[in-house]
Design a protein around this nucleic acid. Sequence first.
DNA 1: AAACTATTCAATATATTTGTTGAATAGTAT
DNA 2: ATACTATTCAACAAATATATTGAATAGTTT
Lengths: 220, 220
Amino acid sequence: MNKREFKDRVYGELARITKSLANPHRLEIIELLAQGDFSVEQIAEQTSLPIANASQHLQVLKQAQLVDINRQGNFIYYKLANGNVFKAWKALRELGVERIATIEKLVKDFRQSKFKFESVTIEGLLQRLESGKVTIIDVRPTTEFNRGHIANAISIPISELKERMIELPKRTEIIAYCRGPFCVYADEAVAILNKAGYKATRLEEGFPDWSLMGLPIEMN
Amino acid sequence: MNKREFKDRVYGELARITKSLANPHRLEIIELLAQGDFSVEQIAEQTSLPIANASQHLQVLKQAQLVDINRQGNFIYYKLANGNVFKAWKALRELGVERIATIEKLVKDFRQSKFKFESVTIEGLLQRLESGKVTIIDVRPTTEFNRGHIANAISIPISELKERMIELPKRTEIIAYCRGPFCVYADEAVAILNKAGYKATRLEEGFPDWSLMGLPIEMN
DNA sequence: AAACTATTCAATATATTTGTTGAATAGTAT
DNA sequence: ATACTATTCAACAAATATATTGAATAGTTT
C-alpha cells in the first residue's frame, strides 16, 4: 500500500462516518439519544418520522457504529455508542451556530416570536449559583430526568408545569433547562412562568452539555 | 413557524454544514489547511486531485463558510475560516479512530509494513520533556514550519533529512512530528533516523493539535 | 401453533453528489 | 490591447442518498 492509497482509505473511512451524521433527521436522532435510550417507535414520534424511515436512519447510524442496540421484549432500544458521538455532534453544532448566521437567526426569531428571548449559558449559571439562590427546573419528560439530571434540579415536565408551578418560589430566580439549545421545552416553560409572574430564564445548553463538562449530576 | 418547522430548518442547516465535511477529499483538504494557507494548485497537488476537482471541493467548503479566500496576484489562497473548523475535524477524526477499527488497523498496518511502529502522544511528550532532554524535529516543509511550530523544535523537512541528520544528537531521544496522525512524513523520518542509529519516535498528533491545546508555539 | 407487535427489509422513484471534460473568467505581464 | 496564468464555471454521466410503500422477520402472548 502506497502513501496515496493509505490516505484514500483513511479519509474514506472518516468520510463514511461523517456522512452517517450528515442528515437532518440523523442529527436530530443523535441529539435525542444524547438524553438516553429510546425505542424506534419513540424516536420516530419525537422526530416526526414514519417508523420505517426512522428505522432506516437508525440502520445507517448503527452501521457506522455510532449507536448500540439493546433488545427488551418486542422493543429495541437505541443509544449512543459512547461519549465521542455526542462530542462530535457538539463540535458540529457549535461550528454551525458560529459559522452559519441563518441558524442563529432562526433560533432568535423563533424564540422572540413565541417567547421572551433571554437565556443564560452554563458558565453564567455557575456564576449565579455561586452568588445567590437559584432554583433549577428540568422540564424534560420524567424518564429523561431519571436517567440523569443537573444536581439539585427539580423535575417538572413541561406538560405538568401549569398545575405544578405553585411549587416554585416567586422570589428567587428560576432557570429552566431541557435537552439542548434547539429543544424548545425550556422556552415554553420560561414563557409560562414569566406570564405567571415568576422570574424565569432558560439555560442555553442542555443536560448532556452540562454532563460532558464534568459538572455535578444526579440520577433517578 | 411551528416547532417542527423550526427543528427541520435548524437541523437542515446543521446537516448542510456537516455534508460539506462528509467527503474524503474535503476532509483531507481541511487537515491540510489546518497547517496554514495554500493555493488551489498546491491543494490539488497535495491531495492528488485534478485542479478543477480541487476547486470544486473548495467551492463547497467556501459555500459552507468553512474556508476563507485571499487573493494574491493570480493565486487564490484558501485557509480555514476559524478554529472551530479544526475542532470539528478533530472531533470527527477522534470519533472515527475510536469507533472504526478499520482506521486503526490501516494506520497500524501501514506503519508496521514500512516503518517500525511506535509513537508517543502529546501527553507522553510533555512528560518526557519534564523528565529529561528531548530533541523535537518538525519534518514538514519549511513554509509550514515558519507559519507556526512547537516551541524549540528544529525544522528539518523530510526531503532534507538524510543530508542534515548529522546536525542531530545521537544520544538524546528525538521526537519527529508533522501535520497530524495521518501524515506520514514523521513515520518516514523515524524510519530514516532509526536506521542510521538514532533513537527516534514519532509524535502521534500534529502541530495543529499541539497548538489547540494552548501549548507553547513559535512562529517564523 | 396462531395471532400479534415492533422492527427491518426490499423495491422503486426521485433527488443529490461526484468526477470529467472543455470552455469561460479574472487578474497579471508584455 | 494581447498573451498568459490560475481558477472557476457549465454540462453531462455515473454513483449515491432518500422517501415511500408494502411485505418479511423476530420475538411475545394466547
